[in-house]
Amino acid sequence: MSEKNREGKRTARERMLEERAAEEARSKRKKKLIIGGVVLAVIAAGVITGVVVQNQRSKPDTPVAHPAGTIGDKNLVIPDGPANAPSVLTVYEDPRCPACGTFEREFSSTVNQLENQGKLYGNYHIVSFIDRSLGGKGSKYGANALACAQDAGKFREYHDVMYKNQPEETSDSFGDKSTLIDLAKQVPGLDSPTFESCVNDNKYAGWVSAVQQDFDKSSYKSTPTILLNGTPIYPKNGEEQISPENLAKWVDAANAGKPLGTVTSATPAP
């Protein structure tokens, strides 16, 4: 009897211990689940907030304001030369890109001449991605200043001055707005309170971002990208290396038998 009793007691004790252990394991598991839930909730809340915030912060693909006379369905392109010229030169350039500076210093006089002869219509996409890899603001501020010059009808002149005074790729002097305004003084009739406030207020920041986003989505990866009537010609057109002479030759070949564009003394096209 007493032995049986003791045994009963022991099993009761064991049962109690077992139950307590099970209870502890349960609460441990519950705690783990709660922690896991909190962790996932923190991550989900962070990511969702982030996507919403970044969506609001990102500039639209279609700019709200664009410089006067820009063309294309979103007004992202700055035209130069006669709109009815038989050939079109499409240029993607970053103000800070050294290869663009090399291209401009070698070819700008030829391009200007071809435009002045009514042979060529320039279409400029002023992109701004060097800032991403090197840091700084020179690409974006430089592109904005070019947009301001376009507003003033002095895009070509300012563009040429800018590339002649391009800093080393790693030095971000275009990131200093006063440098951009100083360069404008080399273009007769460009520097004005309107131009300066346009540069200082970074007026076309949204447009600059839209032009870059358009380039991001294009199949072109680097600058300068130069297309003659849609065909890449830089650094080579097929087997032929580009040179000022070859460029003029290619344009003439493409224009054979076509009437030249109407050249007016003032460049901006509608």
Partner: peptide
Amino acid sequence: PIGYGLPFLELALALL
């Protein structure tokens, strides 16, 4: 969505 969300996923992991 990925470009905008990924940095915040990384920040959330950093915080945790």
